[in-house]
Design a protein around this nucleic acid. Structure first.
Lengths: 163, 163
DNA sequence: GGATGTTATATAACGTGTTATAGATTAAAT
DNA sequence: ATTTAATCTATAACACGTTATATAACATCC
């Protein structure tokens, strides 16, 4: 067994480590979404959520809202368009801007997600790291160990069986 | 100003958020490396560090050590080969395995990095989040705010001027 | 000792982030 | 009013992770 260098090096590799844990968490989240039979990527949710919360947003505002760069927002918005979850139209006052809004299908997805999926994911993540405390490196180690012991999907209350 | 949805949604978007912070941290780390005039990517360091710590490793062991999948390890190792930092040779007992070892150039880079760069990066990250405590979401918020206020390169002791 | 399965690495195809840059539209300036 | 600058979105090229699969070498089993 080889040691985990990223973990060993601590603060020095914190960037790599956060990325790595984030990727793992998102993959686990995706699994919960897939198990629920929804056809959407975990990374696309924040876009829909942003519009749901703030109303129609431009590409630039979406980028800001989800914390990525504008080309990334353009691409993901294109995917959501293809999927039929959002609509895009020129802003009436400024033809450079494109206002992205939820379609009925998109709103349905959000409404359903709010009821069924989001609480499950949030609860699973809270179960994983909600009670942690202390220095961040220790918390990260606990999260990694926790994920290795039981992925998010196994921490999700909806998996319970009613006997 | 648009609200930061990923932040607002808390545990629900924790995967996205960790990734995002990790990417930011790594970009900042890269800046420190570049300013020091070294020609290496932040993400390549853990590979060299792993070999430095454990001696020559196979591709599979490297993947384990840095916590990524084997194809990723194959690719990064290929880059390090091109850069002349590592060497690769068939394992004497098992011709399927390739042992990756540091070249003199690679060892020099590591030695120099240990002395000059790594302490600087570790100190900057520690300055950013070493004293944090409490629930992880609050720590992440503090890290994001901290990075926005002053990137790693500005927290790095080597920038001090001797008057 | 040759067929069959396992293991290690390589390669291909893709996802999703980035930076750099082009094109269109609006705002500002002379 | 026309030129110039700024802003917004799109596109291209790249970085670096993933999964799936191919190929080569070793191990095992009649």
């Amino acid at each position: 067994m080889v040691e985990d260098v990223v973990r060993t090096l601590g603060f020095l590799c914190m960037g790599s480590r956060l990325r790595r844990i984030g990727e793992r968490l998102q993959a686990d989240t995706q699994q919960v979404i897939d198990e629920a039979g929804l056809s959407i990527q975990a990374g696309q949710y924040p876009f829909l959520a942003a519009i749901d919360r703030a109303g129609p947003l431009t590409i630039g505002e979406l980028a800001q809202a989800v914390g990525i760069t504008q080309p990334g927002a353009t691409r993901t918005t294109g995917q959501l368009l293809e999927l039929g979850y959002v609509d895009m139209q020129l802003a009436p006052d400024d033809q450079r801007r494109r206002l992205v809004s939820l379609t009925d299908k998109g709103q349905d997805l959000i409404d359903h997600s709010k009821k069924v999926i989001w609480p499950r994911i949030a609860a699973a993540v809270a179960d994983l790291c909600g009670d942690l405390d202390g220095p961040i490196l220790e918390q990260l180690a606990a999260i990694e160990d926790g994920l290795a012991a039981a992925p998010l999907a196994r921490r999700s209350p909806a998996k319970e069986e009613t006997p």
